[in-house]
Design a protein around this nucleic acid. Structure first.
Length: 599
RNA sequence: GGCCCGGUAGCUCAGCUGGAUAGAGCACCAGCCUUCUAAGCUGGGGGUCAUUGGUUCGAAUCCAAUCCGGGUCACCA
């Protein structure tokens, strides 16, 4: 049990003893960290009990404080400051905490629970390469998956590839018209980029054609519909749906190029999946669900044969599920895929990492499933995140105003190299080690930058200002870790020692304030991790890790570890920094960020 | 217009199940390297927590209204 939970229970018991006639809900007992300007480690807030107990805060505080110090084995003393009971935790508690955990490389993880979660993320379209905005999605999905695993869940990482539809047909038609058969092999251009170039080309040509038609007297809407290249793309889509061999062949070829490109990007970024869904396999699945819904009377048909669901009672609108010609729309596909996922895996939860522009869509998806009585409905959860924007506004692939993911990764690695070289820190590394180090620093900074903000919030990225390697960054945490490893190296202590190392440790002197606060922070890690898992919020771990690294840096500056005042102090501090490094590594690993032993 | 989300220091963000004098980073200013890695540490300036009202011992946090910004409400995906 965590320390705060122990304190809450102890206080609850104490009040039950002191005031047997009054029942106090344990939820009203608030245990906070004591503010640094007061003596103590944790604080019980007395105010909520005043009315119930009909007593003054100081009286309750004294009774509670005396009881807790006298009857439990947790505290050495207390202070009451205007309604706040500040408790000081026993030295021996902190020391045995350290002894119990400094060898535990899985510290903070929860035991396996019987809960299976799928998390769908990335889910790219195959008409263009990944851009900076997609990176947020990928990192968020990957980190959340790891956090859920650490919290004891069985996790399936899924990617739903949007490999069919008008968007890829646009790339195809532009390629057919303008590429002269260019391939990635021939041009040396990465496959996803090559296909993306023709997507941009399509839009350039399209814009020109629309302009011409408008100049010739057409109104804008008609021009947009009648532009020849658009009509060609739509014709291509019809042929694709009819199974035209030639079209399918080109489609497969171009998708193949894109997948080869994606593989390189995913590998570079450390993104992986357990299960791939392809929309070309699943896009027809929803129709059966709609049929069943019609039979149940949950859905209804309009005169033209289109099928709808009425969500006006739920405060939403009517929503189309099948077109008049019987073809399915986006929502229909998603109904089918949601059911497929559930049927295949019997999921307790199905998480969708999707930008917040689809909040309404996801709400409707879940509602329809609920109305249809599908068992998958309850588990659907939209992990909604704000989009990454440029100072000029949203990124638009079709206008080519995007920060490319591959470029961004390469630039960050280059920046890491420049900074390392300019501060003269390359000594003692082989070229191979340096290459690895630059990747760790560059990609770490990139991931941290995108994960440190709460998912829900949108973020603005200015490409002119490169991502910082100082302050609230992965680099800062990596640096603290490298410093710890450096000390351990010099002391000839392994980074992950076994329990024999400090087996004979005995505590006799008091902990210094900085020693206390760093151990206190370490004790909170399991709580932080559990909360991050419950909220599906990796930014909580970024925050915590930064604070812990900061605490270490302050400590490092104030007290020597290798030249501690005594052997006892030295051992205690070694245990502290070993666990600190271990926790930092653990938390950052969940973010997909590695920490170097030297930098 | 309906629904959803955001508005905290010059900038980027924590804090939001109500708790002590609202915290970090960047930027700015002043210090700290014959001592374990200065990608660091210490200190300083900088705030009507969008506005107004309410709830109460106590509100950045909860409620209501308003203002600003964004998203969405397609037989697009």
């Amino acid at each position: 049990m965590t320390l705060t939970a122990q304190i809450r229970h102890a206080a609850h018991n104490a009040l039950a003893h002191l005031y047997p006639d009054v029942t106090i809900d344990i939820a009203t007992i608030l245990v906070n960290e004591t503010k640094p300007e007061f003596t103590g480690d944790y604080t019980v807030v007395i105010f909520p009990f005043l009315k119930l107990l009909k007593q003054k805060p100081d009286v309750i505080g004294k009774q509670l404080g005396d009881y807790l110090v006298g009857k439990t084995d947790l505290f050495t003393g207390y202070e009451i400051v205007s309604g706040f009971l500040n408790l000081t935790v026993k030295e021996s508690y902190w020391v045995s905490f350290l002894l119990n955990h400094y060898t535990d490389t899985h510290y903070g993880e929860r035991a396996k629970v019987d809960r299976r979660v799928m998390i769908e993320y990335s889910s790219p379209n195959t008409n263009k390469p990944l851009h900076f905005g997609h990176l947020r999605n990928n990192f968020l999905g990957a980190a959340t998956a790891e956090i859920l695993k650490a919290a004891g869940n069985e996790v399936i990482k899924a990617n739903l590839i949007n490999d069919r539809g008008i968007h890829i047909c646009k790339s195809m038609i532009a390629w057919m018209r303008y590429a002269n058969g260019a391939t990635p092999e021939q041009t040396g251009i990465k496959g996803d980029h090559l296909v993306g170039d023709y997507y941009v080309k399509f839009n350039d040509v399209y814009k020109e054609e629309v302009k011409k038609l408008v100049a010739a007297g057409a109104d804008e809407k008609t021009a947009e519909k009648e532009a020849p290249i658009m009509k060609d793309a739509q014709e291509l889509l019809r042929k694709w749906e009819a199974g035209d061999t030639e079209v399918r062949r080109l489609w497969q070829q171009m998708n193949g190029w894109v997948y080869a490109g994606f593989d390189v990007t995913y590998k570079k970024l450390g993104i992986s999946f357990d299960k791939q869904y392809y929309e070309s396999d699943t896009y027809l699945l929803g129709k059966q669900i709609v049929e069943a819904g019609l039979n149940k009377g949950v859905l209804y048909k309009k005169e033209d044969g289109s099928v709808w669901v009425d969500l006006r009672d739920e405060g939403l609108d009517e929503k189309l599920l099948l077109r008049g010609d019987g073809t399915s729309v986006y929502m229909t596909q998603d109904l089918g895929t949601a059911k497929l996922k559930y049927d295949e895996y019997k999921l307790d939860q199905s998480v969708y990492v999707i930008a917040d522009e689809q909040n309404y869509h996801m709400q409707v998806l879940q509602l329809i499933m609920k109305k249809l009585g599908e068992p998958c409905a309850a588990g659907i959860y939209h992990l909604s995140y704000g989009m990454v924007e440029l100072p000029t506004g949203r990124m638009k692939s079709r206008e080519g105003t995007v920060v490319d993911a591959d470029d961004m990764a390469a630039e960050m690695i280059k920046l890491a190299q420049e900074q390392t070289e300019s501060s003269g820190k390359t000594e003692g590394f082989t070229q191979e080690e340096l290459t690895k180090l630059y990747e760790m620093i560059g990609l770490g900074a990139l991931k941290f930058y995108l994960l440190r903000v709460e998912p829900r919030k949108k973020m603005i990225f200015d490409p002119k200002e490169s991502i910082d390697l100082h302050g609230y960054t992965a680099t800062f945490i990596q640096y603290a870790h490298a410093r710890i490893c450096s000390i351990l190296r010099k002391e000839d202590v392994p980074v992950t020692p076994d329990a024999s190392l400090f087996a004979s440790f005995k505590q006799s002197t008091e902990l210094l304030p900085l020693e206390r606060s760093i151990i206190l922070a370490l004790e909170q890690y399991p709580t932080i991790l559990a909360d991050a898992a419950d909220e599906l919020n990796p930014s909580a771990l970024c925050n915590y890790s930064f604070q812990l690294a900061q605490l270490f840096n302050t400590f490092y500056d104030a007290h020597s570890i290798s030249k501690a005042e005594s052997e006892e102090k030295k051992s205690l501090r070694l245990m502290t920094i070993i666990l600190t490094a271990s926790v930092l590594r653990h938390a950052m690993k969940l973010m997909g960020i590695s920490l170097p032993e030297k930098m």
